[in-house]
Structure formats: structure tokens, C-alpha cells
């Protein structure tokens, strides 16, 4: 990307970048925050209208889910499920002996038949 420098002095260009950069970062995050504060409930409301066709005011749409069900409760449930699934140790036997595998005799795998039965030319 070619860029024409407006300022020959690097320090003053630094200040320009500092100010614009900070403004843009804040701007981006503020946009996100505003969207998720106001835009998302509205979108969910529209979605509900499309799918169910019920006429409701924006204020009637609950984004809150269950107000009694706080993040702390879900954290406790999540922690307990995690503990149950991955923190439990099962005891294994420490014996690592190779077991002898015994095969039942089968004429199908017997070598002797392969040797005796030759094709007759």
C-alpha cells in the first residue's frame, strides 16, 4: 500500500495516529456496545414477528431469559458438570503383561492344506 505522508515530522504524525487510532478503537467498541444494547433486542423482536407473527412491543420482548437464573448459578452448574466429567480418576491396574492370544484351530487357515493342494497342470 502506498501512502502519501501528510506530515514530514514523525512525531506530529505519531500524534495524529495516536488520536485517530484511539478514536477509531473507541468508536468500534462503542458501536458494538450500542448494537448489543439496543440493536440486538430489536433484531430478536423482528425475528419473533417473522417467525410467529405476533404483534408485540419492543419492551415486551424478554432478552433477559430467566431473571432468577443468574450467571453465577450457571457457573456453578458448569463447574460441577466439568468436575464430574473430567476431574474423576478411574483406577487402572498397573499390570502391563502381554496376554498370549490363543487361536482356535481352523482348517481354513491351516498351512498344510495350502501345501498339499496344488493346481494340476
Amino acid at each position: 500500500m502506498t501512502q502519501i505522508l501528510l506530515y514530514t515530522d514523525t512525531i506530529s504524525e505519531g500524534y495524529v495516529i495516536l488520536i485517530t487510532g484511539l478514536l477509531i478503537v473507541f468508536g468500534a467498541l462503542v458501536t458494538l456496545a450500542v448494537f448489543f444494547n439496543y440493536g440486538l433486542p430489536w433484531m430478536l423482536y423482528v425475528y419473533k414477528i417473522i417467525t410467529k407473527g405476533k404483534d408485540k412491543k419492543i419492551s415486551e420482548i424478554k432478552v433477559k431469559g430467566d431473571s432468577g437464573f443468574t450467571g453465577e448459578i450457571s457457573a456453578v452448574i458448569g463447574a460441577s458438570v466439568h468436575m464430574y466429567l473430567s476431574e474423576q480418576h478411574d483406577i487402572e491396574s498397573g499390570i502391563l503383561t502381554i496376554k498370549q492370544v490363543k487361536k482356535a484351530y481352523s482348517p481354513w487357515s491351516s498351512k498344510i492344506y495350502g501345501i498339499q493342494n496344488r493346481l494340476k497342470s
Binding site: 512525531i11 487510532g21 484511539l22 478503537v25 467498541l29 462503542v30 458494538l32 456496545a33 450467571g71
Partner: peptide, 30 residues
């Protein structure tokens, strides 16, 4: 991201900490 979605205003704090980025940028220029 659910804690962020639940409380979008906290997003600004993440922006505020970026002051460090730009201040250091200036320091390095000096």
C-alpha cells in the same frame, strides 16, 4: 462472550486499555 453480551458497556474498558498501545507508540517515536 456471554458476559460481554450481557453487559455491553464493559466493552469500553477494553478500549480504554488500548491507551497503552498508543502511548507506547509515541514513546518509541520519541
Amino acid at each position: 462472550f456471554s458476559s460481554l453480551i450481557a453487559n455491553p458497556k464493559l466493552m469500553l474498558l477494553g478500549g480504554a486499555a488500548q491507551i497503552g498501545v498508543f502511548a507506547t507508540f509515541l514513546g518509541a517515536l520519541y
